[in-house]
């Protein structure tokens, strides 16, 4: 009787083995999905490639996704539903960005693209503004005294 009980227990345990082994099996599924793609570059030219990033859902402290940008400086993620996100990218040398953005409008490729202003144009605009500021400042500084 005792032997029969042990045997039935062993049999029951062996029946559980396959499902136990399943828990360690990583299954995969390959599919094509639409992704949100954020591209980073140094001044719009060199890609910010192979640098670390952390992606958070709005208001959450645990990242939704972490990793490194690809060779073209891109972070791609299939957003489960439209909403607000925070994306932080950083390099060891202190370069990076901390973005808050909304994917609600990103229903078509490129539709959520940030406005781009080339660095040369920025330099030109900035220099012009500086000349304007110093021009205004010129109205308020003291005149150099001219000796008679």
């Amino acid at each position: 009787m005792k032997l029969a009980a042990i045997a039935s227990l062993l049999l029951s345990a062996s029946a559980l083995l396959p499902s136990h082994a399943d828990a360690h099996d990583i299954v995969h599924d390959i599919s094509r999905e639409q992704a949100v793609v954020v591209t980073f570059s140094y001044g719009g030219a060199e890609p910010f490639s192979f640098e670390s990033y952390e992606l958070f859902r709005a208001g959450e402290d645990i990242p939704f996704q972490v990793g490194r940008t690809d060779a073209l400086g891109r972070v791609a993620f299939p957003a489960p539903q439209p909403g607000s996100w925070r994306l932080k990218v950083f390099s060891e040398s202190g370069h990076g960005a901390d973005l808050d953005f909304d994917t609600t409008q990103a229903t078509a490729p490129g539709s959520c693209e940030a406005p781009k202003l080339g660095n040369r144009l920025k330099a030109l605009v900035g220099a012009s503004l500086l000349f304007g500021i110093f021009g205004l400042l010129n109205l308020f500084v003291k005149k150099r005294e001219v000796s008679p």
Partner: peptide, 24 residues
Amino acid sequence: DEDSIPKLAVLSAFCFAAMMLMIP
């Protein structure tokens, strides 16, 4: 004084432009 303003404006604009142009 007023003579310094244009010079500082030019050198500040130069700083601005130098900082904007990234060197790979």
